[in-house]
Amino acid sequence: MSTVPAEPVGFPSTVETARVRHGDGGPSPSLAVVEAIADLADVDPADLPEKGVVLYDHVDPDALNALVAGRPDADVDVSITVADYDVRVGSDSAVARRSRD
């Protein structure tokens, strides 16, 4: 995985988050979302479906990629909920955190 150490970004500082950068030779935005969630779940991204986390059940990955990929100078901020995770996807990274109950 290409995660950056967990850090709060746009979320309260007491919340555990995982950030994965996308673009510039890295993963696509949708894959960055999957990798960030997998990092928080402490599983391999390929094992997320076994945990009940399937990105396509929550958002069209191709549409997400088209919306944010290749726009490094744009002010893009997409917020989605994927299973038990809140995710923000910006122009260069995806940040995931566990949803509050």
Rank of each mutant, 00 (worst) to 15 (best):
77 D>M: 08
64 L>Q: 09
99 S>K: 12
26 G>K: 09
28 S>P: 05
80 I>C: 07
70 G>L: 11
73 D>T: 11
54 V>A: 03
45 P>W: 06
16 E>V: 08
70 G>T: 10
14 T>K: 00
4 V>E: 15
15 V>H: 08
49 P>T: 08
83 A>D: 14
97 R>K: 11
49 P>N: 10
60 D>N: 15
1 M>D: 14
80 I>F: 02
81 T>V: 06
93 S>C: 15
20 V>I: 10
65 N>M: 08
77 D>L: 12
19 R>Y: 11
34 V>I: 12
73 D>S: 11
9 V>R: 14
42 D>H: 13
101 D>F: 00
83 A>C: 05
44 D>T: 10
2 S>Y: 00
5 P>W: 07
78 V>C: 10
12 P>Q: 03
52 G>K: 01
93 S>E: 14
24 D>P: 02
73 D>I: 02
17 T>G: 14
31 L>E: 15
28 S>I: 02
83 A>E: 13
97 R>P: 02
81 T>I: 04
70 G>Q: 03
85 Y>N: 08
93 S>W: 08
40 L>A: 09
87 V>L: 07
5 P>Q: 13
8 P>C: 11
31 L>C: 09
1 M>K: 00
12 P>S: 07
33 V>H: 12
60 D>G: 06
83 A>P: 06
8 P>K: 01
14 T>L: 14
20 V>F: 08
61 P>N: 03
28 S>L: 13
46 A>G: 05
36 A>D: 06
5 P>L: 10
92 D>E: 15
85 Y>M: 03
55 L>P: 05
74 A>P: 07
1 M>Y: 01
17 T>H: 04
24 D>G: 04
48 L>D: 03
10 G>H: 02
81 T>N: 03
14 T>R: 00
96 A>D: 00
94 A>H: 02
31 L>N: 13
99 S>G: 05
52 G>R: 02
36 A>I: 03
99 S>L: 06
65 N>E: 04
42 D>C: 04
57 D>R: 09
72 P>Y: 07
18 A>V: 14
26 G>N: 09
94 A>I: 03
51 K>Q: 15
51 K>C: 05
6 A>Q: 09
67 L>P: 04
32 A>C: 12
37 I>Y: 02
85 Y>R: 08
77 D>E: 12
59 V>M: 00
83 A>G: 08
8 P>R: 03
34 V>H: 11
71 R>F: 05
69 A>C: 09
14 T>P: 04
50 E>W: 05
80 I>W: 01
22 H>T: 05
75 D>P: 07
92 D>S: 15
45 P>M: 10
26 G>Q: 11
74 A>W: 05
48 L>I: 09
47 D>T: 03
61 P>I: 04
34 V>K: 14
60 D>C: 09
90 G>Y: 00
40 L>Q: 10
88 R>I: 00
72 P>A: 09
20 V>Q: 03
15 V>K: 15
64 L>C: 03
53 V>K: 15
80 I>K: 04
63 A>W: 04
13 S>W: 12
95 V>D: 06
13 S>Q: 14
53 V>Q: 07
91 S>N: 15
62 D>Q: 11
95 V>L: 13
68 V>L: 10
53 V>Y: 05
54 V>W: 02
34 V>L: 08
69 A>K: 12
31 L>R: 15
29 P>A: 10
98 R>S: 15
83 A>V: 01
37 I>A: 02
4 V>L: 12
99 S>D: 01
72 P>C: 05
3 T>M: 13
